[in-house]
């Protein structure tokens, strides 16, 4: 049970942090023209394809006792796992949010402004307009986080009752030859992913009023 709870908490906290950082950065990149935008976009898109195990290794080295952030003592803790997951998920949220906004009609912001929107209201209207794409960004990020095993294993250490999550538990049970348990955990992982995705998809269809 602790495994399920921890999986849920780590994934949802990581998704929340990635959204809080990624949606504004993606909006900025998608809506504004500024110097270095092309470079930023290339970096973010590269980040979308980062191998989790490489992220895990980098975070491991950063958080290890000799590493630059060793004082935090986050290695082999859920906080360290969240940090790694955020690095994996943030570029996905930012990149796909930006792409969703760029897909809107180029005249749309002008028409929203014409209706009297200020800059903040305009950005909000555009995000609402691109809501389907933004929710898809969150779904993709969540999928990446919850199924991820490399970084969770390296940074978390798969410590029972402390940092063991469903994906790392499945690896462990499979290695032990406990295939039935591994399969059962896989089923639980699927159900958990289904529940969170269903929740996110509800946001996609719920009509929202302009503010």
């Amino acid at each position: 049970m602790e495994v399920i709870r921890l999986t849920f908490v780590v994934s949802v906290v990581a998704l929340a942090i990635s959204s809080v950082l990624g949606i504004p950065v993606g909006s900025w990149m998608g809506l504004r023209r500024f110097r270095g935008r092309g470079l930023l976009r290339t970096l973010i898109y590269t980040g979308m394809g980062l191998p989790p195990v490489v992220v895990g290794l980098a975070v491991y080295l950063t958080l290890s006792r000799q590493g630059p952030m060793g004082d935090l003592e986050w290695l082999f803790t859920p906080a360290g796992m969240v940090a790694a997951q955020v690095i994996i998920a943030f570029p996905i949220v930012a990149g796909l949010t930006s792409a969703a906004l760029e897909g809107l009609d180029p005249e749309f912001p002008l028409q929203v402004r014409s209706l009297g929107a200020n800059a903040r209201q305009e950005a909000a209207a555009m995000l609402r307009q691109a809501r389907g794409g933004v929710i898809a960004a969150l779904l993709a990020a969540f999928g990446g986080i919850i199924s991820e095993v490399g970084a969770a294993m390296l940074v978390g250490g798969n410590i029972e009752g402390k940092t063991r999550v469903l994906s790392t538990a499945i690896v462990l049970e499979t290695r032990r030859g406990e295939f039935a348990t591994a399969l059962a955990l896989g089923g639980v992982l699927l159900v958990l992913a289904f529940v969170v995705n269903a929740g996110l998809l509800r946001l996609q269809v719920t009509p929202r009023h302009p503010s």
Binding site: D105, E107, F108, L110, Q111, V112, S114, L115, A125, R128, Q129, R131, P207, R208, H209, P210
Partner: peptide, 13 residues
Amino acid sequence: IGMIFQRPLMVSG
């Protein structure tokens, strides 16, 4: 000032 664009775009809702 209000304006009607040639190709009006609707906000979601």
